[in-house]
Every structure is written in structure tokens, then in C-alpha cells.
Design a binder for these strands. Structure first.
Lengths: 190, 190
DNA sequence: CATTCAAACTAACAAGCGTTAGTTGATAGC
DNA sequence: GCTATCAACTAACGCTTGTTAGTTTGAATG
């Protein structure tokens, strides 16, 4: 029963920073230790394994998305409105932790014990997403195209936000979400 | 002056396959050798280093994109028409080598000697891309939004195609490019 | 002052890494 | 049949990897 380790959190934050640059596999415990200003062995006073760090970064983010989607799909809203909320969800989570999103996107396959759990969350998320699009097509809100192509197109953009948000600090989350929704939903054709 | 090594090509193709699953850093020369049905040392009869394999995968793809963009930007066409050609370019290259596209997207930072060259090509590509969008806004073809947001949105989708194309064999390249252009340009709002 | 405790340290481990050197056996050209 | 070439092999190298064990330090608590 402690105050839940600030030192452990610092290690995880530093690791997140390093993982986004070179990926999980290319970052060594000695790299991480150097970045923390200590020796590699000392890291093990705070964490149990390298693997545990990756899990801490990825799983909490994945669960945050699942939770957000669960809330959105229960709402009594139009499909288009739900899509806008999904865009806002991604912008929000990514703004708070863009480097962690790099690991989520690129290093999930190096999860060992939690790989199946992660894949389950992801599949469920994509199913919920495509379901909202199908509803929108049925209700005549959304143009009648392949719903998987639509989801893929939107989700690819949202998943890449982590690459882009850190470069654009002038724009705030709300404005970006609105701008992005506009482009993704209404297109760019005049 | 030989027939330019089919065996070397097989190694590179096999490596491409392995890299897309686990990334460059997590694939060992012994993994690659096992997948080729030989011992690690034997690989060096055909290639000079692990690094050289990565370079062979990534640089040729990057140059193909540069070449495609150079051709498109010289054309006397509307901006929207040029965007459709860019979509087709990505669908085309990705369909021919989806696994290589995984390395291009995820392992470029592990290029050593050619990193600067690669980054130069990428920057030029993105500049050409955003220039086409700016032209489209000036000529009143494209809605007046932040051109970087537009480029980012489209390019993210195109760069993620490699994840998606291998799962959708029923759809052909031409139909996919058309479908995607429709969604990206005209949006999904009815 | 004595004790406790967190958080750093040194030293070392077995395993795995990319790569090199030198060798072998099969195939093709003279 | 001799020779050259190709593509595999065995054996080993020096280094790096994640991780463990045991120790030291300095600050807080009684």
C-alpha cells in the first residue's frame, strides 16, 4: 500500500520517450538506464522486466480506447455525431500521450503475456467502429460505400495522429478535432 | 557482371516477410537463415550485412515514390486529378510489395548510412504533396482548410494501406484506388 | 544513537548477437 | 579429368543482451 511509485512512473515515461524513437526492440535496458542517469541493474529496484514496461505503456492506452468506445456506442446520437466523438476521443488520448501511442501502434506485437488480450480489445474496437458506419449507411446519413474502406480510411488517419500532433503545438485539441472531422466526413471537394 | 543474384533476392524477400511481422531489430540473422533453410553464416555468401538488406528494401521503394511524384507534378491536370493519381500510385506500389511497405513505414529509422538520403526524399515528397493541395485551394477546387491537415489525413491513409491490402484480395487495385479516392476526396457525408 | 528502508551501486551470469575465417562438396566449362 | 566457381557448411570471435545477487549509501523514524 504505497503512494504508487513516482520513480517507477519516471522510468516508464522515459522508456516511452525512447521507444517512440527506435522501437521497443532497439532500446536496451542500458539505454534506458543512461537516460535515467543510473545503471541498468538499478532499474530492477522499480520494475520487474523490460516486458512489464511495454505492457504498462500499451495496455492502459488500449483500455482507454475501449472505454471511450463503450461510452460512445451507448449514446442516443446520429452515426455522424458518433464519428465526431470518435475523432475527438483519438485527438484527446493522443494529445495526452503521443509517445505512448507510438508504442501502441508499432510495438504491440512484442507484448508477450498480454498479446491475445490486446488483440481482443483491438478487434472489438474495430467491430464497434464499423458497426457505427453501417448504421449510418442504413439510416441514410452516410454514403453507400464499403464500410470497411471507410473505417480503414478514418482509423488510419486517427492512428497516425501521434506522428503529427507533437509538431503542431499551435493548434489546440478541440480545433484539431473539429478540423479533422470536417475533412474526414465532408471531404475536400468544393 | 552476373545475372544479378536470384539467391540474394530470395534472401531479401524472405527478410521483408520477417521484418513486417517483428520489425528489423527483432529479427536476427539466425531467424532469417532458418527461414531460408540455411545457417546464418551462409547468408554472407550473398549479402554483406544485415543493414544492407534493410537498405535494399527501403531505398528502392522510396525512390519509386519520388519518381511517381515527379511524373505527377509535371502533368497538366487539375489538383483533384493529381490527387487521384497519387492515390493510385500508393495503391499500385503497395499492392506489388505490401511487406516492404511495412519496413518503409516502421524501420526507416534503422537505416544508418542512408538515413539522411531517405529523409530528404520523404521531405521532398511531402512538400510536393502539400503544394498540389495548395494549388487546389487557390484554383477553388479544394475547400479552404489547413493544407497540412488535408495532406496528413490523406497520406496517413495511404501509408497504412500495407496493413490492409493483404487482407482484401477480392478487391483489385483499380477498384480500390477508385473507392479510396471517392472517400478521401468527397467524404462520406450524404 | 540505532534501525529501517528505499534506491542506488559493482560484479557477474548465460544466452544471444552480427560477423569472419576457413573448409567442403557439387556443378559447369575447358 | 582438371580447374574454377558457387553456395553451403563448421567453428569461433568479441560484444551486447536482459537479468540476478549481494552490497553500499544516505535519509527518515523510533
Amino acid at each position: 500500500m504505497n503512494t504508487e511509485g513516482t520513480r517507477r512512473d519516471e522510468i516508464i515515461n522515459t522508456a516511452t520517450e525512447l521507444f517512440k524513437d527506435k522501437g521497443y526492440s532497439a532500446v536496451t535496458m542500458r539505454d534506458l538506464a543512461t537516460a535515467m542517469g543510473m545503471k541498468a541493474a538499478s532499474l530492477y529496484n522499480h520494475i520487474n522486466s523490460k516486458q512489464e514496461i511495454l505492457k504498462a505503456i500499451i495496455i492502459s492506452l488500449a483500455e482507454e480506447f475501449t472505454q471511450g468506445m463503450d461510452a460512445i456506442k451507448k449514446l442516443d446520437q446520429t452515426a455522424i455525431e458518433k464519428l465526431k466523438l470518435i475523432v475527438a476521443l483519438h485527438v484527446d488520448i493522443t494529445t495526452k500521450n503521443p509517445h505512448g501511442m507510438a508504442s501502441l501502434n508499432n510495438d504491440w506485437m512484442h507484448l508477450e503475456g498480454q498479446l491475445d488480450y490486446y488483440l481482443g480489445l483491438r478487434e472489438r474496437y474495430e467491430q464497434d467502429f464499423v458497426e457505427i458506419i453501417r448504421d449510418g449507411i442504413s439510416s441514410n446519413e452516410i454514403v453507400d460505400t464499403n464500410p470497411e474502406v471507410v473505417m480503414f480510411s478514418i482509423l488510419s488517419t486517427l492512428r497516425s495522429l501521434y506522428l503529427w500532433i507533437p509538431k503542431k503545438e499551435e493548434i489546440n485539441a478541440k480545433a484539431l478535432a473539429q478540423n479533422l472531422s470536417e475533412v474526414l466526413i465532408n471531404g475536400i471537394n468544393k
